[in-house]
Structure formats: C-alpha cells, structure tokens
C-alpha cells in the first residue's frame, strides 16, 4: 500500500475541516506515515471470502415504534444554551456562500 504525500495531508485536512499549521503538516506527515507503515502489514493477511465485521452485537432489526417522546425534547433555552451566537432562536453563522457538495 502507498505511503502518503504532503499534498495528501493538505487534501485530507480540507476534507476533515481542519486547518493545520505548517509545522503540524510536517509533523503529521511523518507520524501518519509511520502509522500507515505499521498498518500496511494487513496486506499480508488473506481475506478472500471473508465477510467484513462492522459491529459485534449480532443484533438485527432493532427499532422503536413511531411515538413522540416529548420528555426528551429540549426546551428552547436549553437548545441555545451552548452558544451566544443566537438570533430569534436561530443559530447564527457567517453567511454560507458555497453550496452543499
């Protein structure tokens, strides 16, 4: 498997919505590469005809009925208590100019 380039670091940071300093970029470049080198041993494992495990519960079809749980709904002062950037009970951010990707 491939190792990672410094341009990849910048691309990943963008995808992850992180802004990295130049020193973080180069530090992470080295550290992440050494971890990737370590995890590359997985290549040697034969996994043909092996199903992936995404969870270990063995459970299936766990649902709730379509009932309104009014008790768990938060009061509007609770909803907005985590920030002071509130206007008429809306959360406020700088105007979003780019469209959703």
């Amino acid at each position: 498997m491939a190792s990672i380039k410094i341009s990849d670091i910048r691309h990943i940071a963008k995808l992850a919505n992180l802004s990295l300093s130049k020193s973080q970029e180069s530090r992470f470049f080295t550290q992440i590469n050494s971890v990737i080198e370590h995890i590359n041993v997985l290549c040697e494992v034969d996994t043909s005809n092996v199903e992936p495990t995404s969870q270990t519960t063995g459970l299936e079809n766990i649902y709730r009925e379509d009932n309104v749980d009014a008790i768990s709904m938060l009061k509007s002062n609770q909803v907005t208590s985590g920030t002071d950037k509130i206007y008429n009970n809306f959360f406020v951010v700088d105007m979003i100019l780019s469209e959703k990707i």
Binding site: V79, Y87, N88, F90, F91, V92, V93, D94, M95, I96
Partner: peptide
C-alpha cells in the same frame, strides 16, 4: 442581521 450577512439555522 445588524448589517452582517449571516445564515440562520433551524434544526
């Protein structure tokens, strides 16, 4: 809002 271009979010 108050002269600032903002986006308001309702969840």
């Amino acid at each position: 809002v108050n002269g600032k271009r903002v986006s308001l979010i309702d969840f």
